[in-house]
Design a protein around this nucleic acid. Structure first.
Lengths: 303, 303
DNA sequence: CATATACATGAATGATATTCATGCATGGCG
DNA sequence: CGCCATGCATGAATATCATTCATGTATATG
């Protein structure tokens, strides 16, 4: 209903990236969106522009004359904009003092630690301590922690919640294990041992609930390992299939120590959020860290 | 690794306008937003930037050092962007052929006609005919019209709907009339004649429903006039108070031939939309007109 | 002081972008 | 050829974000 500019930034950014990527799908990956989102965005942009901007006929996707001109404008605009953003970042007031951060054990050790160095380097005056634990809420409320990263929901009115990323679960196993047990559909899991945090196998419910009835496996042979990292090592050694948050095995998947099974099955996702006491959330150091964490792309978290 | 841009266009546009306007409220008016919206947007922008951009302490609202730098970047960016938009507009494929447009009588005669000239001038090859009528749907379905602008809802699957603006109703009368009848609250309307499209006064229900119980007027003296334009002339002459869509009396309010009454009471709004047959909505000429109408600011429609 | 002006804020709402689940076309390839 | 893979489009459902509404707080002004 309001149409200040004909041009809309998210769409232009998409267009700009698309022109560099050569295909909708590639562009979508770069922007951590789906191909569909890119398609919608471009349709809208072209509709707004009133002229075709993309030339879809040939194999390689090209720009029309108008598209090329718009692309040049984008170069200008984004150069300026990015420079301005850089400039702002440089001039952010540096944080100082002490900040006590809590996180879940697996997330903290595998992901958080990997990404804190640049932040620490940028804020040498800031002293950060980390506490990895299952129970994060009570230390936060007790003021033993200033900021926690948790996948449990804490809907308290005194807490400020900022959502961070979605924790996606995967079923995975060693490549050799998949071969010997001929794992093709979820039902095949009945054939071999599975690793579980608990002996009863409740750990796997999250997965089972997402499996259609006729493909339900019988998980009879359960190997209990009460520690995720240990479970992962066990899986790499071919001891069984496991169910874990994707972020915890990013490296193993990359190196093909593990392979993901049944990508079509999507267990319910948990959402990781940052929680802070509202009264302290305005402190520069807390805002700074929050911003930093949120600026990490979802890909870093395996989403 | 870092999210798109830290900078977001609608916010930057607001910031840019704000810097030129000198106050939140003034900026809000320019952008046809509320002061609150501007405030929210700036809060978010500053939060993203990580540094204060606005200096609110002194009487005149100023920019901080970082704000000034960002403002310079904005100048650049919006200059480029607006130029690109202009360029695109120039290169839009010109429409040609014939386009039959339908609209409600009052809207068509008072507003639509006022704004079509630039469009016609930009598309000399296009022949447009206008039909103002109460019944727009059937001619559209019969293909006697290509595009209609209507405040009735037509939720048909074969039609494409594009919303245009909200029709806001006002109660108004001649300044002298207000004085002689001492109209201060809705109940005072009992004192003098009111103009209505129908003798029964059902026309006023839209207003009465928005009035709290204890202020309900008794509309006993009703002057029926079955034509809005005539009703307006009657009101200007001091014959009574009337209830009309704001857009129909924009001129009279401006010249103070009429004054708006009870701004606190807000009758239900109707939404004007553009309807076209889906199969024909892709025709260049129809898209062009749709875009043009949507690009008119809400202020043009009295919203 | 009382009032007016200017901005802030939280909750509710409304609008928009994104995804999901498809469909349709084109280009290898057995 | 028919078959599958790939790349883009599309409509409905959903998630995300902006805007408004209804207030609150602060400061200046007569």
């Amino acid at each position: 209903m309001y149409m200040d500019t004909l041009l809309d930034l998210p769409q232009l950014r998409t267009f700009f990236t698309l022109a560099q990527s050569g295909s909708f799908t590639a562009c979508a990956h770069r922007l951590h969106r789906t191909q569909s989102a890119v398609s919608h965005a471009m349709a809208k942009l072209e509709d707004l522009a009133g002229v075709p901007l993309l030339d879809r006929k040939s194999r390689e996707l090209g720009l029309t004359e108008e598209g090329r001109r718009l692309y040049l404008a984008c170069e200008q605009v984004f150069a300026t904009l990015d420079a301005a953003a850089e400039d702002l970042k440089r001039h952010q007031t540096l944080a100082r003092g002490r900040l006590r951060v809590g996180a879940t054990v697996e997330f903290g050790s595998s992901i958080l630690m990997k990404h804190m160095q640049p932040f620490l380097a940028a804020n040498p005056e800031l002293e950060i301590d980390f506490t990895l634990s299952q129970d994060l809420l009570s230390p936060l409320l007790r003021d033993d922690l200033d900021l926690i990263i948790d996948c449990q929901d804490h809907p308290l009115p005194t807490l400020k919640k900022a959502s961070l990323f979605r924790e996606i679960y995967v079923v995975a196993c060693a490549p050799a294990f998949r071969k010997t047990h001929r794992l093709r559909v979820p039902a095949d899991l009945s054939r071999g041992p599975v690793l579980s945090l608990d002996k009863a196998g409740a750990w796997w419910n999250r997965f089972l609930m997402a499996v259609p009835d006729h493909e339900q496996p019988q998980l009879d042979r359960i190997i209990a390992v009460n520690h995720i990292r240990a479970m992962i090592h066990a899986a790499v050694e071919g001891m069984g299939a496991l169910l874990v948050p994707r972020y915890s095995v990013l490296g193993e998947l990359e190196r093909r120590d593990l392979v993901a099974l049944f990508p079509a099955i999507r267990p319910t996702e948990d959402r990781f959020s940052i929680y802070q006491k509202k009264v302290k959330a305005n402190h520069e150091k807390q805002k700074l860290l929050t911003r930093y964490l949120q600026s990490l792309s979802p890909a870093e978290f395996g989403s």
